[in-house]
Amino acid sequence: MLGRACPELDCELIFEAREWRAAYLVIKRCPPPPVPPRLGEMVEWVAGLGGYLGRKHDGPPGPKAMWIGLQRLREFVIALEARDALAGTYV
């Protein structure tokens, strides 16, 4: 709900840096920038991971898409942490 009401906020108010960086890597397929994205953008990314298509006529993402997206995001964070542990670095 905060992402709808205040989409311009910094996403690090809600998400950890490793979460938004993992989402950026998976969705954009390039290294994340040093500045975190806006909260509204991060909510769209999480909803997209949960199956939300975001078409013009679609309403805002619902709880099911957000729940699935958050579960998938957590899996990506765990995978990246494991990768970085093997490489000796950290996201």
Rank of each mutant, 00 (worst) to 15 (best):
L2F: 01
G3N: 02
G59K: 08
Y52S: 05
L39C: 00
W45A: 04
L49E: 06
P34L: 05
E19C: 02
L25V: 11
E8P: 05
G54W: 07
T89C: 03
L25N: 12
P34V: 06
E75F: 05
L13Q: 11
P61Q: 00
G51H: 08
A5D: 14
W67R: 14
A17V: 14
V43R: 12
A85L: 03
E81F: 00
V77M: 03
A87H: 00
Y24T: 12
A5N: 09
V77E: 10
L86P: 03
E44K: 10
E19T: 01
G50V: 07
E81N: 08
D84F: 02
L70F: 10
E19Y: 00
A23L: 04
A79K: 12
G40N: 09
R72M: 09
L49P: 08
V35R: 12
L80R: 12
P61V: 00
A79N: 08
Q71C: 15
L49S: 07
D58T: 08
A47K: 05
H57D: 15
E41S: 12
D10T: 08
A47G: 05
P63H: 13
E44M: 08
I78D: 15
I27S: 06
C11R: 04
L73T: 12
K64N: 00
G59W: 05
L53Y: 08
P7T: 01
L2Q: 12
L25T: 11
C6P: 04
R74Y: 13
G88Q: 06
Y90P: 07
P37Q: 01
F76Y: 15
R74I: 07
G51Y: 08
K56N: 11
E44H: 10
Y24E: 10
Y90L: 13
P33V: 10
L73G: 12
L49M: 15
A85Y: 03
I78W: 12
D10C: 12
P31Q: 08
V91W: 04
M1A: 15
W45V: 01
E12R: 15
E41K: 14
H57R: 15
R38Q: 10
E8N: 08
G62K: 06
P7H: 06
V46Q: 09
P7G: 02
K28Y: 07
G3D: 04
E41H: 11
E16I: 04
R21F: 05
R83C: 04
